[in-house]
């Protein structure tokens, strides 16, 4: 109640500095292409760290990256124990960082993700005839196009963006060749009249959601972490935190990730 009193005039972020990782359960959330900044997301990371510290009895710290290069550099440098990564990041760097999926996120409660290629309504219906650059928040990592089309692949250029909505608006106006939206993003526009200038020309197969991964060989700590994460949806104390993390909970690792 008291915080809301000053809601407008007094809101301010708690800034904090990132520090080198060292803890057994320190983590990194790596979502290249997602909007915002590391600093903006830090309060959420702190909340998650605080929750896990309580559950695991260990001091936990975490950090968020939405910039691919920053994330790559940081992992090598600070060696987090585990992380939540975007699917394309996992597929592209699983071997490099010895990532082992231990759980899956459930954004909006969905078990699987689906990507859709959206183009201006005046364009041809075939994805093969898309000309120009296609944008998408998940298109930063090298294997993203392969994930979208499976084995077929696409002929057009792709580019990662932090501004998927802006790109969608441009597609709506016919100014950009196309945009790829994940299932959560698509849920926002699917019933909206605002984007009547667009159409879906390709829908991917069902894809795994962002996985929770363990860096390196799994051990007892992995199992302890997994147990805590899988129980979060049943814990009233985790309700608000899960909202901040934009997932309704965690499920066992998606088999399609292996």
């Amino acid at each position: 109640m008291f915080r809301k009193i000053i809601a407008f005039a007094f809101i301010l972020a708690l800034t904090l500095s990132s520090a080198a990782f060292a803890g057994r359960f320190d983590f990194a959330i790596i979502q290249p292409g997602q909007p915002g900044t590391t600093a903006e997301a830090q309060p959420v990371m702190d909340e998650l760290a605080k929750y896990l510290s309580t559950k695991l009895g260990e001091k936990v710290r975490g950090v968020y990256y939405n910039d691919l290069n920053e994330a790559l550099g940081s992992i090598e440098k600070s060696k987090p124990a585990w992380g939540i990564t975007g699917l394309t990041f996992f597929k592209s760097y699983a071997n490099k960082f010895s990532m082992i999926p231990v759980a899956s996120t459930l954004p909006q409660g969905m078990q699987k993700d689906v990507w859709r290629l959206i183009v201006p309504i005046s364009n041809p219906d075939s994805p093969l005839k898309v000309g120009g650059t296609v944008y998408g928040s998940m298109l930063y990592a090298p294997r993203s196009l392969e994930l979208l089309f499976g084995t077929q692949g696409g002929e057009f250029a792709v580019e990662g963006t932090h501004n998927a909505l802006r790109m969608l608006r441009k597609v709506n106006k016919g100014k950009v060749a196309g945009v790829v939206l994940d299932a959560v993003q698509y849920s926002v526009i699917k019933d909206s009249d605002r984007y009547s200038g667009t159409k879906v020309v390709f829908t991917s197969a069902e894809l795994p959601n962002s996985p929770v991964v363990w860096f390196g060989s799994t051990n007892d700590d992995t199992l302890r972490l997994q147990a805590v994460l899988l129980d979060m949806d049943k814990d009233p104390a985790a309700k608000e935190l899960l909202k901040l993390l934009q997932t309704v909970g965690f499920s066992p690792a998606d088999k399609d990730l292996h």
Binding site: A39, P43, K243
Partner: peptide
């Protein structure tokens, strides 16, 4: 700075 509280 930015608020991390969704309630805000």
């Amino acid at each position: 700075g930015a608020g991390g509280d969704s309630g805000m």
